[in-house]
Design a protein around this nucleic acid. Sequence first.
DNA 1: GAGACGTGGGT
DNA 2: TACCCAAGTCT
Length: 383
Amino acid sequence: MSRRASSRSYLDRLTPALRETFHGLIDWYRRHARDLPWRRTRDPYRIWVAEVMLQQTRVDQAGPYYERFLRAFPTVEALAAASLDDVLRCWEGLGYYARARNLHRAARQLVAEHGGRLPTTYEALRRLPGVGPYTAAAVASIAFGEPRAVLDGNVIRVLTRVLAVADDARASATRRALQEVADALISDEEPGTFNQALMELGATVCTPVQPRCNDCPLREVCRARAMGDPTAFPVQTPRASVPHYEVALGLLFNEEGAVLIQRRPEDGLLGGLWEFPGGKREPGESLEAACARELHEELGVRVAVGPCLATVRHAYTHFRVTLYAFPCTLLEGVPRSRAGLPLRWVPLNELDHYAFPRANRRLIELLKQRRLQPDLFGQNPVR
DNA sequence: GAGACGTGGGT
DNA sequence: TACCCAAGTCT
């Protein structure tokens, strides 16, 4: 079963009949393609934005963001001229915020060095921050007609099923061999359409669960279907379970009723987004103590911690958190970020002007609902 | 190469 | 509830 990684290949499974059937995907696509916003444009910038938004993101979720983002930043120049905060605010809720930071950085790079135009080749696109093999192939083929095969989750699923690939689909040797197959199949006349056809098939017919094999144009040549259980492919190793953290957040109000927020470092998790100060509870520590300790460590102040006002649970990719929000009263000191992060006092009705992580935003919504019960805030009036 | 990096929907 | 995962990229 296992071969030397350097020699792994599935090209010998590409029979003439199978190649012919794959070629028919372009016609299938013309009849079944969904009408999606980014399929109505030839503008390379718009196609680029769409492909970045679609990384690890469902079409239904990206759709509204795509429209809104391009209204706000209709051109490379407009995106380059915007502040990162404005870009992140537009991206809030879409996740993987490095995509927005890289898009912004790449736009500035293009304006500074490339006349604000997108590169027209795979190799040149690949050099832009946030543009990996998938995005470079997608933009090069769809916007510029370059025959470069995309290999995304959809294509991997379709190919491993049709060819009954029993190797771990996440292994790099398998990826390379599948890329080789996709390169061998792609249409030289309509590479962009072929790429989208293969992805569309994976997204709408050859789905992870309950694939619609009876509607599949590849059903006659699909080895997985012949074997009886298409969902046995792609073969992947199960993920490890994720840790769960408890995080105490401090709601520190000033005399005007504004609350203190701080901006996260621009690299790493949720980079560049704003949040309430706080941090993880340590073993044997109460949540209230964790809140006071974190505010002391981060802001150099001593606070009295009131009763918990709200909790939010949230699942990230590789861990899980529960947020606990505590109203805090300043006892000693003036808040200053020890890490040199930007701090700001913000009236509750202006929190919408800042990009927050989803879990923080849900917390804000809960607190707004309780504005009519000022006693909940104890000695910290909301108004 | 393995792990970091978000979020929402489906089962 | 808990787990899976979706048009990936970076380090």
